[in-house]
């Protein structure tokens, strides 16, 4: 099955034009209150749960925009941000 991703600038394009940028982990931890645990968690750790996740993508072979989408990792299909499945 073809895999498409919707770039906010270019619209739906082949998934191979993009680079995956990781699960959305919220804002970078505040350096003032940084602990080794918090940094390790932010840098390395993932949820890796099958299902809908919010995640970063980069339109590498296109406009160069970084953006987030919701995708179901069990189907490779994008999910609309306002759909009920996006509420974790």
């Amino acid at each position: 099955m073809a895999f498409t991703i919707t770039c906010p600038i270019c619209g739906p394009r082949s998934g191979y034009e993009f680079r995956y940028g990781g699960e959305d982990k919220g804002p970078r931890p505040d350096p003032a209150q940084m602990t080794p645990e918090a940094w390790c968690d932010y840098v390395h750790m993932t949820d890796s749960r099958p299902g809908v996740q919010k995640e970063w993508w980069y339109h590498r072979a296109g406009c160069g925009t970084w953006f987030t989408i919701y995708r179901d990792t069990t189907t490779n299909l994008e999910v609309a941000p306002d759909s009920p499945e996006t509420v974790a």
Binding site: D41, D47, S48, P50
Partner: peptide, 19 residues
Amino acid sequence: GYSAGIASRLMGLRLPISV
């Protein structure tokens, strides 16, 4: 392939794994 999801969901332990 499901071990990281089981760890985060059922054990409360996040792992540095991408599936």
